[in-house]
C-alpha cells in the first residue's frame, strides 16, 4: 500500500479580502507524530489549522486528509466546492479542540461528549454513555459528568472539549491554542492530557504559545510568520539553533516574557 501522511498540505494560500494571510504553506503530518505550530499573533497559524479543517476555505493549494482532498472536488481538472456530505466524511477522522472550548452550555459534560456519538454515529444512549464515561475518565473528568459547562473551570471545560473530540475516535487531533484562554494555573492539567495523548501515539497538530510543551512533546516544530513557514525542524533545531533572524527575535521576546 502506498504510504500517505495523515494530513498533507500543499501550497496553501488563503486571503481575507486584500489580506494575504497564508502564502504557500506545505506541511506533512505523519501518523503518530506531533507537530507544533508556533509564531507571533497574526502569523496565520490558526488560519492554517482552520483551513486544514476546512472551517475556513482555502483559495489555492490542497489539503489531503488520509489521501482524500478536503473541501473541493476536481471535475475535469477544475476545482469545485465539495458537498457538505463529502466534506463531513473526509473530516470525520479529525478531532478539533478550540481556544474557547466551544462546549454546548445546555448539555452536561457527558451530554457534550455523547451528542455526536448519538446523532452522527447513531449509537444507543447506553453505548454512547459508556463511551462517554470512558472518555471523560481518560481526561480526569468522570466525576464531573453531570455538571454543566458553566459549573466547570476553564481547564475542566477544555478537558471536556478534548473528550468530546476523542470520543469520535479521530485519527488526528487539531488543537487551536488550547490553553490560551486559560488562567495560568489551569494550563498544566490540559497540557498533561495532551502529553498523555501524544504518548499513546495520537497524531496531533498543535497551534500553541506553550513553548515548553512544543519543546518536550513535539516531533516537529513549525515556526510561522506573516503567512509563511520560516523554519521547521526538531524542537532542538528550532529552539536551540534558530537559523533565521525572525525566529531568534520571536524566541527572545518569548524568553524575556517568561522570566
Amino acid at each position: 500500500m502506498e504510504h500517505k501522511p495523515v494530513v498533507l498540505v500543499e501550497g496553501l494560500h488563503k486571503r481575507f479580502g486584500a489580506a494575504h494571510v497564508l502564502r504557500g504553506i506545505d506541511l506533512a503530518v505523519e501518523s503518530s507524530r506531533v507537530v507544533c505550530v508556533i509564531g507571533p499573533s497574526g502569523s496565520g497559524k490558526s488560519t492554517l489549522l482552520r483551513c486544514m479543517a476546512f472551517l475556513d476555505r482555502y483559495d489555492e493549494g490542497r489539503v489531503f486528509i488520509e489521501g482524500r482532498l478536503l473541501g473541493y472536488r476536481e471535475v475535469d481538472g477544475r476545482r469545485v466546492p465539495d458537498s457538505d456530505r463529502n466534506i463531513d466524511s473526509v473530516r470525520s477522522v479529525i478531532g478539533m479542540v478550540f481556544q474557547h472550548y466551544n462546549l454546548w452550555p445546555h448539555k452536561t459534560a457527558l451530554g457534550n461528549v455523547t451528542e455526536a456519538l448519538r446523532v452522527v454515529k447513531r449509537l444507543s444512549r447506553r453505548e454512547a454513555e459508556a463511551i462517554g464515561m470512558e472518555t471523560l475518565a481518560k481526561v480526569g473528568m468522570e466525576e464531573k459528568a453531570n455538571a454543566y459547562p458553566a459549573r466547570l473551570s476553564g481547564g475542566q471545560q477544555q478537558r471536556n472539549a478534548i473528550a468530546r473530540a476523542l470520543a469520535m475516535r479521530p485519527h488526528v487531533m487539531y488543537f487551536d491554542e488550547p490553553t490560551s484562554a486559560l488562567d495560568p494555573e489551569l494550563v498544566g492539567e490540559v497540557l498533561e492530557v495532551m502529553q498523555e495523548l501524544a504518548g499513546e501515539g495520537m497524531t496531533m497538530v498543535v497551534v500553541t504559545h506553550e513553548m515548553g510543551f512544543a519543546a518536550h512533546v513535539a516531533d516537529e516544530v513549525v515556526f510561522m510568520d506573516e503567512g509563511e513557514v520560516i523554519e521547521r525542524g526538531s524542537p532542538d533545531d528550532v529552539f536551540k539553533r534558530p537559523r533565521s533572524e525572525r525566529l531568534r527575535e520571536f524566541l527572545d521576546t518569548w524568553r524575556a516574557r517568561t522570566i
Partner: peptide, 22 residues
C-alpha cells in the same frame, strides 16, 4: 457563539440537527 456551531460541524453533526439540538 459561532464556535459552538463550528464544534458541531467538526463532529459531523448535520446542519438540521445542529439547528434542532444545539
Amino acid at each position: 457563539p459561532a464556535g459552538q456551531l463550528e464544534a458541531a460541524r467538526m463532529l459531523g453533526i448535520p446542519r438540521r440537527l445542529v439547528v434542532a439540538r444545539i
